[in-house]
Computed example of a mutant assay.
Amino acid sequence: MTTADQTSPGLSFTPFSARTQGAPGFIQDVWDKIPLPRWLLITILVATAFLLVSCLLCIICCCCRCQQKKKRVKKETVGLGRASNSTSAHLVQPDVDDVELALEGPKSGRLQVSLEYNFRSQELRVGLKEAADLKALQAAGMADPYARIHLTSDPQKIHETKVHRQTLSPIFNESCVFQVAQAELPEAILVIQVLDFHRFSPHAPMGELRIPLGTSDLHHVLEQWYELGPPDQAKQEPMGELCFSLRYVPSMGKLTVVVLEARGLKQGLSDSYVKVQLFLNRKKWKKKKTSVKRNTSNPYFNEAFTFALPFSQIQNVDLLVSVWGHSRLSRGEPLGKLLLGCRATGHQLHHWSDMLAHARRPLAQWHRLQSPEEVDKALQMKKGLRLPLPDS
């Protein structure tokens, strides 16, 4: 009995090859039914395949990185566990030098200073080259630094450098000379203070350097970098501050001094006033003073004084501004003085120069009062009659 005879008359079988031939026709029908051009469909399919491949690659890379991190952590753990005790102590405990540096605290910066002593003339020449890595005291991150130099053996003589604007690494390139006897060298100390200049507020100290001359080899020229220490505010004895403005009109020959206010004056003397004097050729010439402010160490004056001063005499005039105080039990005594003019130094000279450079404009500035003895010594006042100027 054949195979054809074994099958039922109502059944028919389709060969396998005949069934597979229907697939291409189905895909073609679906492709034809999509209402899009073929180039757009091909682009969509390629983009989708690219996105899928990219996602798979990203997942594989992330898994590889996670495995590498786990392996590194395991290796480090094993390495520390197998390490000897000496190696662990070396890694954990800091050196003695590191501990000393940590105890010293943050540095205030560095100064490059040169010292040269002349044994014949007994003069010490101090050269202040530059500063670096100063610490800003304001949130802006910058400062207006300047340096103040003096010797402990002669604290009355102070040299102040120029103010350098908006920098933490000023280049000074200034020098000054101090008269120091050879017998005073073992106990003399050179003090260099770096301060942040503020026109309408107290100057903030940024750092201080103290160089003992007795331990320095002054037989040769010394030039090196020094670390700035923190400012020694305990040894500073301020006598107070005074704010006033200057205005000069060359065409009219008039100098106007406006005494604004003072602060931080001596507490024992409750009453205070300000005296403004002009010296011509180091001789007393003109004088005016403010009213007395009682029972306050921060008096407010706001009084203006005008002096006739021809421009031809501007080089020969010194302006002396002094603050006086008195109480019921004592007569008036000077609390502090300031000397301005072409022979002045420091911020007083800068204020006077700014007044001449900006004619007709009032320029106000705070000044730290200096000791009366120091100003009188710098003024070197001559005795004589008051000299009147023409048209004064």
Rank of each mutant, 00 (worst) to 15 (best):
Q6K: 14
S8C: 13
P9M: 05
G10S: 12
F13W: 08
F16V: 11
G25R: 11
W31K: 09
D32L: 15
L41R: 13
F50V: 03
L57K: 12
C66Q: 01
K69M: 08
V73M: 01
K74Y: 12
K75W: 11
T77W: 06
N85S: 11
A89L: 07
V92W: 13
D95E: 14
D97G: 11
K107Y: 07
S108T: 04
R110G: 00
L111K: 09
V113A: 03
V113C: 01
N118R: 00
N118H: 06
S121G: 00
L124V: 01
L124C: 05
R125L: 09
R125M: 10
R125Q: 13
V126F: 04
L134K: 13
K135S: 13
A139W: 15
A140N: 15
M142T: 05
R148I: 14
I149N: 03
T152G: 04
S153E: 08
T161F: 11
R165Q: 13
I171C: 12
N173T: 06
N173I: 09
S175K: 11
P186G: 03
E187T: 12
A188F: 01
Q193C: 00
D196I: 05
F197A: 02
P202M: 02
E208V: 00
R210L: 13
P212R: 11
S216D: 08
L218Y: 13
H220R: 14
V221M: 15
W225I: 00
E227G: 01
Q233P: 00
E237H: 15
P238Q: 07
E241V: 01
S245K: 06
P250N: 05
G253T: 02
T256L: 05
V258M: 08
V259Y: 05
E261Q: 04
E261M: 05
L265Y: 08
S270I: 06
Q277I: 08
R282C: 00
K284L: 03
K284E: 01
W285S: 09
K289H: 07
V292S: 10
S297L: 10
P299A: 14
P299F: 13
F307C: 10
Q313C: 03
D318R: 10
G336D: 13
L340S: 14
R343P: 01
Q348F: 08
H351E: 06
W352K: 09
A364G: 03
R368W: 03
K377I: 08
L379P: 02
K382A: 11
L387V: 07
L387M: 14
L387P: 01
L389W: 04
